[in-house]
Design a protein around this nucleic acid. Structure first.
Lengths: 151, 151
DNA sequence: CCAGATTAGTTGATGCATCAACCTTGACGT
DNA sequence: ACGTCAAGGTTGATGCATCAACTAATCTGG
């Protein structure tokens, strides 16, 4: 129950700084290249990866692990900008179905290319393969730890 | 210039998920324990760690690596909630100096304890020492990579 | 079949992050 | 000195994230 050791504190500080800077540059490059935010991007990709024409909000929400109000607000903004459309859902008339517009589909592909390239450039080409593996394992371990206590 | 490999894509997905969930639980626990946001916390700790009574906004900004308008907005909100006070700066009459209120100082200590304990619990006690070291190295490497191209 | 509980989704409010525009004050070259 | 320019900070606008309250449709037990 002791405090953090010095190396631990330094490791944490370094991680925090990296996390902030990295998502900063990735978000900025994405916005510069496509005009999309990361939230836009996540939604577009999630919808586009589906084989079906349209996706239920519910399915999106589960895939993204977002709160329902977050998704609702986000979809409203994206609809206003002409990236998606929303229509009634057949199976459940409470639900709604999301469909990409032509522009939405186009941007989804474009953005995916830019984003993956940036991840490659900033992360994958910078770390050794062993480090990439280590990062994956660390992430998986921490995720487990979180999910153990938070149901 | 190829795409991400499958393991790379999985590693990235895992990292992203961990990043979101971890800062989620840490932020939530901090808020539950103290009523502070992470932004509040960062500012309080940064001010409190100074030996001096009051700190210039400029110094804070550099330490936190925040934009000036971000800090200004944050300080306004914190002032309204009675965590800090702001006064004119002697050396440079453009500047402003920040001082913690009694409540601010108290919360800073309280929050630090809770936060460090949570980092220990979720991260340091979960990873092996080697993994902590690896994470620190990975973070430092990525930070270097980012700073090479940006600035 | 119906009453109560769940669930899908929306809405409004608030805090946080960023951008651009602005104001004041200090710095500097001439 | 003085004119110009840069720097410290504030403000307003917008988008994103979360919470709580709400509506409407579905499910479930009796």
């Amino acid at each position: 129950m002791a405090d953090l050791t010095d190396p631990q504190a330094l490791a944490w500080a370094s991680y925090q700084r990296m996390r902030v800077r990295l998502s900063g540059v990735l978000g900025r490059e994405l916005a510069a290249a496509t005009g999309l935010s990361e939230a836009d991007f996540d939604v577009l990709v999630a919808v586009n990866e589906r084989p079906d024409e349209s996706v239920r909000s519910l399915a999106l929400r589960c895939g993204l692990e977002w709160e329902k109000s977050r998704l609702s607000h986000q979809l409203r903004r994206m609809e206003q900008r002409g990236l998606i459309t929303r229509e009634a859902c057949e199976e459940d008339s409470r639900g709604s179905a999301v469909r990409l517009t032509a522009r939405g589909r186009e941007l989804a592909c474009e953005a995916r290319k830019h984003y993956d390239a940036a991840v490659k450039r900033y992360v994958m080409d910078t770390l050794t393969p062993e480090q990439v593996t280590a990062l994956a394992e660390i992430s998986a371990t921490l995720l487990d730890r979180i999910e153990v206590t938070h149901k």
